[in-house]
Simulated assay, not measured.
Amino acid sequence: MNIPNILTMLRVVLIPIFVIIYLLPFPWVYTTSSVIFAIACITDWFDGYLARQWNQTTPFGAFLDPVADKLIVAVALVLLVGSHSRVIHGTMVNLCLTLSAIIIVSREIVVSALREWMAELGARANVAVSKLGKWKTAAQMIALVILLANPPILTTPVIIGYVLLTIAAVLTIWSMIHYLMAAWPYLMTDNKNKIEENNK
């Protein structure tokens, strides 16, 4: 156990706290939830940086880090869709939020499965995180921080959050296509023997 792994575990521990606070019937829950989510985003960058600088990368950290990231993003999206759909009925922006959430969560499932499969072939580097993926993550995190910090009412900050999340969803599709294209030669060939060799 080292500091990067502790920071990663902290993000997992923050998830139930984040959910409980967001669901409380008090006006301060939005700011508090947003701060908790922002802390999780900061620790995401910080634990990776420390692990590389201190040469403390571990199999446990490599496994848990992306899991923690995807969990807290998925939870935030579910909470936002639930709270906004109860207040903002039948509007185009609400539809954008719901579709963006579906796209982002679906993409994470597809790309995670793709990376696991490529790792079995010894070609995971072909679907490593790209600059496009980093731009997507940045837009997504900023959008979620803004949306969590504000009540589900059509104010200017909320609309900005919707726009950023829609941009993140578009970049999500683009980056998924990028990863699928990189993996396409492997998907279209018989890699059964190579998988068996790598599993020996």
Rank of each mutant, 00 (worst) to 15 (best):
D69A: 03
K131Y: 13
G133V: 08
L71Q: 05
G122A: 11
R107Y: 00
E108M: 02
A128H: 10
A62Q: 14
L97G: 04
L97K: 03
P59R: 02
G90H: 11
V105I: 15
W117L: 04
V110W: 07
V129T: 13
T98D: 03
V127N: 06
L64H: 04
I88T: 08
R115C: 07
V75W: 06
V111K: 04
I102E: 02
S130P: 08
G133M: 10
F63E: 03
S112W: 04
L97R: 04
I103G: 01
A138G: 13
G90I: 00
I109Y: 10
A74Q: 01
G90P: 04
K134Y: 08
S112D: 09
L114E: 01
S85D: 05
K136R: 14
A125P: 01
S106P: 03
A125W: 11
V78W: 09
V81S: 06
D65C: 08
V129F: 07
I102R: 00
A74I: 05
C96E: 12
A101Q: 01
D65L: 09
V129K: 06
W117Q: 09
R86H: 12
A125Y: 12
F60Q: 12
G122P: 14
K134L: 09
I104T: 03
P59G: 00
A68H: 02
G90Q: 10
W117S: 12
P66T: 05
G133C: 11
T91D: 12
L95D: 14
P66F: 03
M118S: 09
L77D: 04
K136Q: 12
G90D: 15
K131A: 13
L114D: 03
A119N: 12
S85C: 01
H84E: 02
K134T: 11
R124G: 14
T137Y: 06
S106T: 11
H84T: 05
V75Q: 06
E116N: 12
S85M: 10
W135A: 13
I102W: 03
L121D: 11
F63C: 04
N126P: 00
L77E: 04
V81T: 07
